[in-house]
């Protein structure tokens, strides 16, 4: 299945991929699976997601269809998945 992957801020700069379509194997069902797949995509992605992505005190937040989620969240065909650092507005 295909999903759209988006990145923002530091993650966008490190990966140099702000928005692209990712084809997931059938075995990939959760955000955690997607992270594993992305980490193997390139050294840049491995660096961007790091060891702490998805953990409670991780420095990477993730969203499925514009709602924050976690590594246990299931993904569906056509989903928009996003990865970004903690927010700094205000």
């Amino acid at each position: 299945m295909n999903v759209t992957v988006k990145t923002f801020a530091q993650l966008r700069e490190i990966t140099q991929e702000g928005c692209f379509t990712l084809t997931l194997p059938e075995s990939a069902v959760t955000m955690g699976d997607v992270i594993t797949l992305l980490k193997s995509r390139s050294d840049k992605w491995s660096q961007a997601l790091g060891a702490s992505a998805g953990s409670e005190n991780g420095s990477v937040l993730m969203a499925r269809n514009q709602q924050l989620c976690d590594i246990q969240t299931h993904v569906q065909p056509g989903d928009e998945l996003a990865f970004f650092p903690p927010v700094t507005g205000g």
Binding site: F8, A9, Q10, A63, F84, P85, V87, T88, G89, G90
Partner: peptide, 14 residues
Amino acid sequence: LMDMLKQSVPLWKK
């Protein structure tokens, strides 16, 4: 609103 805005709205300052 201001406290939570700084924590919960996807905005990033450079």
